[in-house]
Design a protein around this nucleic acid. Structure first.
Lengths: 179, 179
DNA sequence: CTAAAAATATAATGACCGTTCTATACATAA
DNA sequence: TTATGTATAGAACGGTCATTATATTTTTAG
């Protein structure tokens, strides 16, 4: 991937996440990324295509974080997953779930690529929890706690979030053991 | 309150919630509310003042729903609260927490009235749980579950959300009994 | 060195944005 | 009826938006 293209995606991700998709103009993105406008249009068909690429890159990063955390897990996988999720929130500054926010801002059209990608991303998270051994009910509970922690981080300190999240995770009654 | 003003607030609430604050223009709001543009500016100083009034009205409705649910509670207050929250989500179409969304779209300025109101609203929810008898840790857990349910409703069916949410609520170990 | 590819700056396009101005119509109450 | 406040339509304002066009420069590869 071109360095310019990567710069665009990374700066766009920060701007979109911090201010919203409709609120950030292309001019601001190319300015912060030090790239000409025509270079952006050379790499992306449209603003929405850029948004989609930003989300896909972020989605891949999130899942690779979860996967590596469970692979390198020394103690229980569920605690490693929870810590990985908290780490992800800590790294990105308390502005909620970017995927849900994208879905919300583009919910006028349910056939929209962005709308569909977010649904797919969320379905993948649920499926991932089931793949590594949790039953359906447990996976749903986990997703609820993960989403809750992300939302909570928008109004509370990360220490409060981590404490509450971990406490909730530990108090889950798990029917099956992983591995 | 003037009927026109009320129409504006109600239609603005729906449009903002369904499409986002930056995505919805004043023209669209006055069209759906059947109101002239100058009438809007007669009742609200600016678009952001309208947004603030929309949030305040919604916030009051939410809290009055929670309060009446716990007052008229026949069984346990926590289950009544949970059901009231689910009812609120059901009534508003699966687009997440409007307060968090407002904070996200106006997070460029932490001194912004909208930003501050949302913080206040969320602090009030936590305080409310403590006022009716839950300790701090329990109140935090409740908020996490409430936020989780709201977020979950954006990608799952309400039946799945209700089942998972209620299951999580019931499995909470409560240190103290209310009343 | 040269040819192809990528990135640049600038400007035009047409549409929409929030806000303000002007001037007219309608309502209610004294 | 007259006066006052409210609602109306329509246009203008300056600005930003995403996108496209044109033309020039820089970088890369053979």
């Amino acid at each position: 991937m071109s360095k310019k293209k990567q710069d665009l995606i990374e700066h766009a991700e920060q701007l979109f996440y911090n201010h919203g998709f409709h609120a950030v103009g292309l001019k601001r993105i190319i300015k912060e990324a030090n790239v000409a406008l025509m270079t952006l249009y050379n790499h992306f068909d449209s603003k929405e295509a850029l948004i989609l690429d930003v989300l896909k890159k972020r989605g891949e990063q999130y899942f690779s974080l979860l996967k590596s955390s469970v692979e390198n897990s020394k103690s229980s996988p569920i605690l490693s997953l929870a810590e990985a999720h908290i780490d992800f929130i800590r790294k990105h500054n308390k502005n909620g779930c970017m995927f849900l926010r994208a879905k919300e801002e583009f919910s006028f059209d349910e056939d929209h690529e962005i709308f569909q990608y977010v649904n797919e991303h969320k379905r993948s998270l649920l499926a991932f929890f089931e793949e590594i051994g949790f039953n359906h009910s447990e996976a749903l509970q986990l997703v609820l706690l993960f989403e809750g922690a992300t939302a909570l981080s928008e109004t509370l300190t990360m220490d409060e979030v981590e404490m509450t999240f971990m406490h909730s995770i530990k108090s889950m009654k798990l029917q099956m053991r992983v591995e």
